[in-house]
Design a protein around this nucleic acid. Sequence first.
DNA 1: GTCTATATTTCGATAGAC
DNA 2: GTCTATCGAAATATAGAC
Lengths: 199, 199
Amino acid sequence: MPRPPKEPSGGRPTRERILDVALDLFATEGFEKTSLREIAERMGFSKAALYYHFASKDDILLALHLRLHELGAAAFEDIDPDRVDPSAWRGLFDRLIDRMLEHRQLFILHARNHDALKRIAHEHPKGEHEDLEERVRRLLADPAVPAAQRVRLACAVGSVMAGMIAAGDFFTDIDTGLLAKLVRGAVGDLIDPVVRGDV
Amino acid sequence: MPRPPKEPSGGRPTRERILDVALDLFATEGFEKTSLREIAERMGFSKAALYYHFASKDDILLALHLRLHELGAAAFEDIDPDRVDPSAWRGLFDRLIDRMLEHRQLFILHARNHDALKRIAHEHPKGEHEDLEERVRRLLADPAVPAAQRVRLACAVGSVMAGMIAAGDFFTDIDTGLLAKLVRGAVGDLIDPVVRGDV
DNA sequence: GTCTATATTTCGATAGAC
DNA sequence: GTCTATCGAAATATAGAC
């Protein structure tokens, strides 16, 4: 029989609590600069104990990458990978903004440790997931797409990122719902000419 | 008498060439991940020789920080620190975009290693420079400024950053002049409602 | 100005007891 | 599942010869 949890952790498994701590540290200090000693100290046990739950430091980052990947897969599974036309951009960004504000830390982790994530994703050739980021990346680099559209798309992505980062640093007094509305408005102004076909 | 330079380095002093190499590495791999061994290898001499030119690794980053600071001071010395009103934003961003595209690496270095730069700037209390970034930062965090203006400003900054980062990654086929024009147009659409007083 | 050699620290990771 | 103890590698930095 499954024994009930004894720790005062809300029944949250130790592995998940380690990931919570690592997410916080990786997002605020960076993956390279965060040491396992630091994670272990916050968890209240020794460095070696971490290795019972994870095979390596990279393995912790990989698990966090999976959290983000599953999130993205669930949120954008109805998008046609082969045909991302501008008319779908507005709805795409509306959902993206909500998701990103809802899971700020995960996206900040991703943006901040992009190199490390790319490295371990490259060392784990399993799945070769075709996620949203890769599609946007290809769109941005495609010389066949009008330059104006590509630049506008990059600015829109940068705007969402900036809003998300600022949310925790400068916008602590702004309600999340209002922030989402304002960012949606700004992104709308950015991609309106693209959607309307003016560029 | 000042002896002529013998190295095939265009007469560029060793110290400056070290900074060039360090800038490239810090911007592409990050400050923490770049080792002095890596810099020394590219320079063609040993690790210890670096310490003849710089007192520490932090000192190298500090010198690069000064490059950026002098650049910013020269470019925005005519801005009134105490009165940054929206009507000046357009001109501010126009100059900012040109400067940033012109010195891409320096700004990428700054964005990527913001924490390390803040740390060494904090350890060097000299000057307590009041630069443009600090002013924008205060504006973004000021609850007295309308939320819509703050969010639009953050999006504009994020757009410029995105355009600059993408310039080297995805926009290699886009002429710099065209890119600057397109980013100016995008930022204009973002801050137009603010400048006109619609928000 | 650059070298070799080395001191010192910190890190990720492992071994084995409990 | 967690511990202590330790290994090996790599990092920053220093000492002293040339």
